[in-house]
């Protein structure tokens, strides 16, 4: 894929020998891989392979027992959620984790929290900096709403939205932080074919237009093979494959463990 080679930048994230255990259960064992700037990397594997745990390690929800995470040149033993967010890592969740009591607009506005800095008193009185800030960020949020084509539901409480739209709003909330690295945990789970097509288009557009690096977990092999530049395969917490879609498709071990049928 010449196209891929041309767009890729230097390594933005590198995880080395990550191991994570909950008591006696080993969720991840000695996992290493890198993500290049502007890449779309898919993590695949059977249920319980440790895919979500891997994302949780990257943005600091879980702290690994061993290994290191190098993000934008800084080596760390573990990330903290706040640090990860402030350095441009955003994510969506497998089970939608929207703020149910808030409107679509407020949910996406919340995604911009780290970019806002009006003082407490200004906010109490809603004067000067606080008000200007709200308006300025509202403009940004409206751009995201336009991009995701959810204009008509911007004032609806997210709890009332159908599943597919909630997934879209969650992507919007992650995008609001203008992330450099976007982690998507099963962005297309439970969607019908049209919704999957829409979501795939959004993911490609985000990658293309904003230059965002994307790490995604997905079970739909058609989507994974078409979208990703590179695929990492996990099984029982171990990495069993790492390569381009073509390489993965022909990898014997991956076929045995996960794909099942040989091409």
């Amino acid at each position: 894929m010449n196209d891929t080679d041309r767009k890729l930048g230097p390594t933005i994230l590198k995880v080395e020998s990550i191991s994570l255990a909950f008591g006696g259960v080993k969720a991840l064992t000695n996992i290493s891989f890198e993500v290049k700037q502007h890449e779309i990397l898919a993590i695949i594997g059977p249920n319980g392979a440790g895919k979500s745990s891997m994302l949780n390690v990257i943005n600091g929800v879980y702290h690994p027992n061993a290994g290191s995470i190098t993000y934008k040149g800084n080596v760390r033993q573990q990330m903290k959620p706040y640090e990860a967010a402030s350095q441009g890592i955003a994510r969506t969740f497998q089970n939608i984790a929207l703020f149910k009591g808030m409107s679509v607009l407020d949910n996406i506005m919340t995604g911009r929290t780290l970019k806002m800095n009006a003082g407490f008193l200004a906010q109490c009185l809603h004067i000067g900096p606080a008000r200007n800030e709200e308006i300025e960020h509202r403009k940004k949020v409206e751009e995201i709403i336009d991009f995701l084509q959810i204009q008509s539901i911007r004032k609806t409480p997210v709890g009332r939205l159908p599943y597919g739209l909630q997934k879209r709003v969650e992507l919007g909330r992650a995008l609001a932080a203008e992330p450099e690295l976007l982690l998507l945990d099963e962005p297309m789970a439970g969607m019908n074919i049209e919704e999957k097509e829409d979501m795939s288009r959004f993911i490609l557009d985000v990658n293309d237009e904003f230059g965002t690096t994307i790490v995604l977990i997905e079970h739909d092999m058609g989507v994974v093979m078409d979208l990703s530049d590179r695929i990492v395969v996990l099984d029982y917490g171990k990495k069993i494959g790492d390569g381009t879609p073509t390489e993965i498709r022909n990898n014997k071990e991956v076929i045995d463990a996960y794909l099942g049928v040989s091409d």
């Binding site: 929800v61 959620p81 995604g111």
Partner: peptide, 26 residues
Amino acid sequence: NIVRGRIGRAWMATRDMDVAAEIIGI
């Protein structure tokens, strides 16, 4: 004014889904 601004959204986010709020940077 507080609840319709950044602080209020941070509170509501913490109320509705604290893990997600933390990951956003709250």
